[in-house]
Design a protein around this nucleic acid. Structure first.
Length: 268
DNA sequence: GCACATGTTCTCGG
DNA sequence: CCCGAGAACATGTG
């Protein structure tokens, strides 16, 4: 669920709480959650560690620790990182108690999220296979990668090895604002169209960050509040509603296994 | 019961 | 080996 703007919003909310603090206590739920790094190892590696910085690449958060190891976090579809000691319901998997008396709760209903500890000097394959972050990707890179593929442009925009951070909402909204039909083969787009897509999507991502991200169901900001950008969606989740520009009804199709929303009259 | 859900990863067939 | 399609993962909502 969280795409780049949601993850960046969480990063900005967590950083003031986490950076500079030391991890003093760790609670892990005793359920079958697939952490990647097992709870026992996590506790052994994280207890007593200070947090130097909290970074983001695409939809991943990376906490840099004071022994030069790293903690990689991904929110999956329904993950929540909240800088509070939330009540421990059946979806709360981890709680950290920090030296500054603050707490961080990781809650995830569908359990698609990932928590991975990375030793000093090592890299996680999850990160190394990512393309450049979508906010800093330039047209030349995007064009060269899109030219290599015949898959629908919608599917290509979601490929995290091309650029990292765009998910289903911002792909659909970006294609709509760029007037590009999601079915178009990736390699068929002109340089001008790719440039328009890059520009529109980056603008969208920045506007969404300013609004605190899009809350559809589960996503929360780090202070527990809802995001606000869902109120600015034009096509995502608007199946059957009139297009804001031409009045044609918004269609929903499936591409790459994902629901895809667009205006067949505006997007060519 | 059915369809669908902000994501990633694996399998399978060509 | 490459590519793309579809399923799987786990749980909830309408």
């Amino acid at each position: 669920m969280p795409e780049l703007p949601e993850v960046e919003t969480v990063r900005r909310g967590l950083a003031p709480v986490l950076v500079g603090a030391c991890i003093e206590q760790i609670y892990t739920a005793r359920n079958n959650y697939f952490f990647v790094t097992p709870p026992k190892t996590l506790k052994a590696r994280l207890l007593g560690r200070g947090v130097r910085d909290l970074l983001r690449h695409g939809k991943y958060l990376v906490a840099l620790l004071d022994d030069d190891s790293k903690l990689l976090l991904h929110l999956g579809m329904t993950g929540q990182f909240v800088a509070k000691q939330l009540p421990r319901d059946e979806h709360v998997h981890i709680q950290l108690s920090l030296s500054n008396q603050r707490h961080i709760t990781f809650r995830d209903v569908r359990k698609f999220g990932k928590v991975e500890w990375i030793p000093k000097g090592k890299d996680s394959k999850r990160l190394t296979k990512l393309g450049p972050d979508a906010l800093v990707t330039n047209t030349a890179w995007l064009l060269s990668k899109l030219k290599e593929r015949k898959i629908p442009i919608k599917t290509a925009l979601l490929d995290q090895s091309i650029w990292a951070g765009v998910g289903n909402i911002y792909a659909d909204e970006g294609l709509y604002r760029s007037k590009v039909n999601p079915n178009r083969p990736s390699s068929s787009l002109s340089r001008a169209q790719v440039d328009a897509l890059r520009t529109h999507i980056q603008k969208l991502l920045e506007q969404a960050i300013m609004a605190g991200g899009s809350t559809i169901n589960d996503y929360l900001m780090a202070d527990g509040q809802l995001g606000g950008f869902q109120n600015f969606h034009h096509v995502y989740g608007k199946t059957g509603a009139p297009c804001p520009k031409c009045g044609e009804l918004i269609q929903r199709i499936t591409l790459g296994g994902r629901g895809t929303h667009f205006c067949a009259r505006c997007q060519k």
